[in-house]
């Protein structure tokens, strides 16, 4: 049994082993501590020259990675909590995202920024957010998110091999999750779009006509499966799940294929729903997708994420929220 954490850690070991251009930078990433979430464990012992622990200087970390990438290295930065990406926003939006196009395609900026996002651990308003939506609309940035179905290691290695800057959005609750095995997916027929950042489509086994499509990414795939199971057994509502590895740029054809079968779309994300990932998916579905798709978006309420569990649970989307929203979509 391999966890998402072990998978990501192994990818970093592999990248450092196989490519001398790869550097890993971040706060508190040296052994024996090995990073706040232990994703970098063991790296500094094996590759002390290329694993660089930094001061608490997010803007400089990102800017230094930009400079390294411009000059032919492949830096991988870890921000301790994804919430701190706001301190890197200038470096991402005005530098990393722009260099290639602004310099008329004469340069490349091959870097990865790993962003541990997400709540449900009681860390409160500034250590629990899913802020990726604020960066999804910045032309020149790519955003991908691992999940428990695809290989997080392969996804991270693909991001490191990418010639453009990639935001690698990790949900903290995924780290300890085991990668799914065949026995975990008996209810599902799984297909994928292929490519470096695949989109997975899960259809209920033995059911041709499902009732709705849940579009999601990252950790929320765990909630989507749980909700789909309850919808099936309790309400005889059959779902397809379209699980994205690539958040932006938006590539929605696998979703549109599913929507041609179901005609109902529920977008699910953990960031605040307003102007979020789901909003763009919904808008593009309305513009470019099959006609007459009913749509609902589900995300966090438009509030900071509270510390108290009772409040946090009420603010973030839950399995019951998914079920309730799905049932609304099914109403005549």
């Amino acid at each position: 049994m391999t966890t998402v954490l072990e998978s990501l850690n192994s990818a970093l070991h592999t990248a450092l082993e196989t490519d001398p251009r790869v550097y890993v930078l971040g706060e508190d990433i040296l052994d024996p501590y090995g990073g706040a979430f232990k994703i970098t464990r063991g790296l500094s012992t094996r590759f002390p020259e290329r694993v660089l622990t930094t001061p608490i200087s997010e803007a400089a970390i990102m800017g230094i990675c930009n400079g390294m990438a411009l000059r032919g290295l492949r830096p991988v930065a870890e921000v301790m909590f994804g919430d701190f990406v706001t301190l890197m926003a200038d470096q991402l939006i005005n530098h990393a995202a722009k260099f290639r196009w602004m310099y008329n395609d004469q340069v490349r900026v091959p870097l990865v920024l790993r962003l541990p996002m997400g709540g449900r651990r009681g860390y409160g308003p500034t250590h629990s957010q899913s802020l990726e939506k604020h960066l999804l609309g910045a032309p020149g940035l790519k955003a991908v998110a691992p999940n428990s179905l695809g290989s997080p290691a392969d996804l991270l290695l693909a991001a490191i091999a990418d010639d453009d800057p990639v935001l690698f959005v990790e949900h903290k609750l995924l780290y300890t999750r085991p990668l799914l095995e065949e026995k975990d997916l008996l209810d599902w027929k799984v297909s994928d779009s292929g490519g470096a950042y695949p989109t997975f489509t899960l259809r209920t086994s033995n059911i041709e006509a499902s009732h709705l499509t849940i579009a999601t990414y990252g950790y929320n795939f765990e909630l989507a499966r749980e909700a789909a199971r309850e919808l099936m057994y309790e309400y005889e509502i059959f779902s397809e799940i379209v699980l994205f590895s690539q958040l932006s740029p938006f590539e929605l054809n696998p979703l549109f294929d599913s929507l041609r079968r179901t005609g109902r779309l529920l977008t699910l994300e953990e960031g605040a729903a307003t102007l979020g990932w789901g909003a763009e998916v919904a808008a593009r579905t309305a513009e470019q997708g099959p006609s007459e798709v009913r749509i609902r978006r589900l995300g966090a309420r438009d509030l900071p994420i509270a510390n108290a569990k009772s409040l946090e649970d009420a603010i973030l989307p839950s399995v019951q929220d998914i079920i309730q929203t799905a049932r609304i979509l099914l109403e005549k």
């Binding site: 400089a60 990675c65 930009n66 400079g67 390294m68 990438a69 411009l70 005005n94 530098h95």
Partner: peptide
């Protein structure tokens, strides 16, 4: 680049790369 200060860490990273 036209961002005051923003170019400084980039240039620092360039030095590190060289």
């Amino acid at each position: 680049n036209g961002i005051q200060g923003g170019i400084v860490p980039v240039a620092t990273g360039i030095g590190l790369a060289e």
